[in-house]
Design a protein around this nucleic acid. Structure first.
Lengths: 204, 204, 204, 204
DNA sequence: AATGAATGAGCCTTCATTCAT
DNA sequence: AATGAATGAAGGCTCATTCAT
């Protein structure tokens, strides 16, 4: 019946879809969500505007698809972390990975932050963060890894420490992406680690 | 019908200008910069669109004017701080003031963050941050106050500590404004202060 | 304060608004609602697209404004009818006026019919027909005039006769506008009047 | 795998074609011609968009095919009418059938009317109505049946009466489909029949 | 200083239609 | 015969900005 096999169709779809998502991310990073036009995204993806709408019902849905990747990356940051021995080393690794990523793709993280801060943080995105079971469980996992580390470090209230640590890293990333040239990223990293080293030492 | 004095004219001008800036901030907070329209801002300010353009050359210039206030507020946070005795108390006061402000006007701080994070962070704003001498000196002053506090607290590298502290507070604010309902703001505040208390204690 | 008087502004608005409504009607008649573009309407009105949207929130709102006129015309059809003596003459006059109007602007009546028949008969239109008190009362008046005529003619159920008569005229108009060249409009008019003459005669 | 007979092929073709026409009618009724998309029609027909274009060169051609059915139904309305004795009974039967059909599928008749009233009444449709010999002869037949009835009823000008009757029924249908809930369809039917009964009585 | 009508570029989105397979 | 990906033109609508008064 079909001129192409199911698999062939799926492949085509996947290819185009990936190209579009990737192009969208590029343009979003460069111009921000509002200033990015579907026209430009399509052009960047070497695809017609119509096709983009074939795959993504709206610009916001496209944004949602782009953001979904953020979660995968966030998860990647803690992958294999339990193979590292010592909570401090684990923490250092996480920090290393995050800040390296930020350094390598500063605009990307800047973009992420703006998305989460938009007052009209599109419902689509919120929905992703809240209803997708897979994502929820991944967030849980990330949280759990951090909690375990701080537990091992012997902090009084590990759960609070996770939030504190997240706030701290968010702040470092935010300040860095605002002015990458002047921000002493490495120094801050060292500062953070030093702090936790002290804490652990103090606890002994 | 009586001719107005120069002062009266100046006042009128100031009033209209202030009303517009204030209205702009309101609308920006609510909708974000891009979704805010000059139409709505003018209406909110009870002023004609034309008049708004009379005072501000463009929407971006208006944004710049709005942002200029941010610096005034930032300065207000440290005003009279030197009348408080003890570096820790001073730090506590600064933190108190900031987080109270954020709590009272969450959307405002959310908006500030988005502005600083826009990839197209309008040149107008950047110009403000860099060339306005007054603002530059105010920033210096803020920095100095913090540096003095951390010096008194006896931290090894006070200047780094200022940046660290700013990153930390930025992160706390960012995380809070993203999800005000679930974020344990008070706990984090206590956490920060506890940390510095320890530091000071440890240094003794 | 104002560079133009209130009245001047109002006049400008009225002029532009009328031009746009009129142009819209032209284009609607020619192409139908769906095929008519705001672009074309604006061009026809010698006005920018933006201005059209300044006055009418959407194409549908513009349609609503256009349709509002229909009611005025419908009312005009019965104006001064009570100065004519004799129910039959009154009926003849109404029929004359209606069919003359249809003859003179066939496309207009064709358009009216399509609007009322659209499955997506825009809510805007429906709202006009139902909620506008003025329009409602005008409809009542039209109905009343017809009822009085049929009462005087001595028909058994005047209210039913009004509906019957309206259906009949609607049908004649519909058939005529579908194929104006072949439809014997005058003959049908005579036919209708003959019928009522008979009726009256029979009742005597 | 066995090679299909010619008849089987023809049947398949017919099936798909019929499914598409039927689906198109469904969607047209629901959304009107312009708001109906080939996408949706194809989906409704459980067929690919491409196949639909395989059978119908364009959306308008599809509409033409849909409208062709209208004529079949119109013919069905008079089928077997000559087996009924008495012109009045025949007329009653025709009216019954038509109004029943309208009652049962109001949206369908609404749709028919809009098609005939579109200013852009696609040439395709017009062509059907005019050049298709089969349809022309069917129209003739319908006309003839009506003419015969009115002849038997003894009206002065049977041909005019046919047009009058058609206008009347068109009007009743139009008014009914515009507001099915409030229109006294049965009363109008009775009214029409009563009128012809009188006429006949009067002629005696 | 002040008004708001007017402009026009730009954007998102839809959809009939084509085409490679 | 059949599929659905891909195209691109067209259309509705928004909004920063200008301008005559």
């Amino acid at each position: 019946m079909s001129p192409r096999t199911q698999q062939q169709w799926a492949e085509m779809r996947w290819n185009a879809s990936e190209k579009i998502i990737s192009a969208a991310l590029d343009v979003f990073k460069q111009k921000g969500f509002h200033r990015a036009s579907m026209e430009e995204i399509a052009k960047q993806a070497e695809v017609s505007k119509g096709l983009a709408y074939n795959y993504f019902r709206s610009k916001e849905h496209l944004l949602a698809a782009v953001m979904e990747r953020r979660f995968n990356e966030a998860v990647a940051l803690i992958q294999g972390i339990d193979e590292i021995s010592g909570a401090l080393n684990q923490l250092a690794a996480i920090l290393d990975r995050l800040l390296d990523a930020v350094k390598k793709d500063t605009m990307l993280y800047k973009f992420y932050l703006t998305v989460f801060l938009q007052p009209d943080a599109p419902e689509a995105i919120r929905r992703i963060g809240k209803t997708s079971e897979k994502i929820r469980s991944q967030w849980e996992k990330i949280f759990e890894v951090h909690r375990a580390i701080f537990s091992e470090l012997g902090v009084t209230d590990p759960e609070a420490e996770v939030i504190y640590f997240r706030s701290l890293t968010t702040g470092i990333v935010a300040e860095y992406v605002m002015e990458p040239r002047n921000y002493p990223l490495e120094k801050m990293k060292a500062h953070v680690l030093h702090m936790y080293r002290m804490k652990k030492g103090g606890a002994d």
